[in-house]
Design a protein around this nucleic acid. Sequence first.
DNA 1: GTATATTATATTGTATACAATATAATTGAA
DNA 2: TTCAATTATATTGTATACAATATAATATAC
Lengths: 231, 231
Amino acid sequence: MLQSLGKQDAPMDAYRQLFDGILSQRLSPGTKLNEVELAELFNVSRTLIRQALQRLQLEQVVEIHKNRGAYVASPTPDLAEQILLARNIIELAVVKLACKHCTQADALYLQQMINLEQSAIDQGDMATALRRSGEFHLQLAIVAGNQPFIHALRGLISQTSLIITMYNHGGGNACARDEHSHLLEAVKCGDESKAQELMAHHLGHIKQGCDFTQSPQVAGLQVAFAHLNAS
Amino acid sequence: MLQSLGKQDAPMDAYRQLFDGILSQRLSPGTKLNEVELAELFNVSRTLIRQALQRLQLEQVVEIHKNRGAYVASPTPDLAEQILLARNIIELAVVKLACKHCTQADALYLQQMINLEQSAIDQGDMATALRRSGEFHLQLAIVAGNQPFIHALRGLISQTSLIITMYNHGGGNACARDEHSHLLEAVKCGDESKAQELMAHHLGHIKQGCDFTQSPQVAGLQVAFAHLNAS
DNA sequence: GTATATTATATTGTATACAATATAATTGAA
DNA sequence: TTCAATTATATTGTATACAATATAATATAC
């Protein structure tokens, strides 16, 4: 609904399937991504699978080891720290820009995304909620209108999802709704310092909600893409 | 010398050839990158060329239009502004981190890079100087030790080279030596605010040296890779 | 002569086939 | 039984072949 593409685009489809699978927590960090298996699941050739995997690698969501295959990335606590620090720097700049550039239409759209996220939370679908939360942050960068920030955040937000999947077992991200709402309010008012303060707190909460002492279990491909195995 | 790889890696080689070609200004912005032509030049199959092109696309150095091929990116003045703004935000954070993490060995290595850059300038090889200048900035991020910043800057620095190629006809980047030296000095001392100030000025000079009113000419592939056509 | 339609060519997109490497299994010796 | 070596299998890496699309060239109508 947020991103309806008219004509089908095989490479993008394969990419998106994998991307969504990872961000929806169906594919756990560390899962091996077998090329032929994926090719058969998606009914395309390995060529397109490899394209998708390479792209995901460059977004840091997948690790590819030469001659040994692709794996869903599993950021270490140290890397997680770096990622959240980078997000803090970039998103503080982003909200500042957003305060300047946010139109009424932008604000409305952002509000809709918040509502969608909330409805996912209400239905107990935390995986979808997490994905939509990421989409909200990305949309903020789009509103800010800085291409490099958009590009960088796409990867960083995805990686943050992995981090939350791995380390945030408590699920303390439920407070996101109010935080996003308040943030949007500040952006609409053009209150830069307030918006930055809220963003800093928001990102701080993500970090606080994580316990960097335990690792997650790894699920297989068939489980992750069970909804495709109609045949 | 700075990056000697023992065993040869065909995909990386193809990528690096193209990357260096672009950053050394042998490939001008807007140049069409024909796949078969490149495959023959590098003596590899189109498969590897396409891999390299996709990677360059994700680094924003190459634009790929569906069914119409790959072109060296040619950032618009507006995008150039966004890129330099993003660099400003990120590199200010980078030097701050670098001030904290810079070891004596790091400082020595950075100094060597400055020397290499200067020797290129002395020989009048501005293309190499530009490339080495970029490597210095990237090394600073490596010293800072933040993976996402390293990753983001790799693309941003490359894009900046394109911007300079396109818009900085005056070549006013010659002042870079002193600026890099002074920057390194501040980093060695751990003087964060001083380092940030110098970095901000340095990046400001890049922008000031550009004239966003004229576009460059486009050279062909054979010219760019003439040094390969021994046969 | 210009413009449109149609054909021919060139280029990119995708799938498959083969090569190289790594992983797993098996065999044999201690 | 355990370890090592060797063979067999599976998986990834690369090149090629074919399909689809776009570009260029030619022909035809006006």
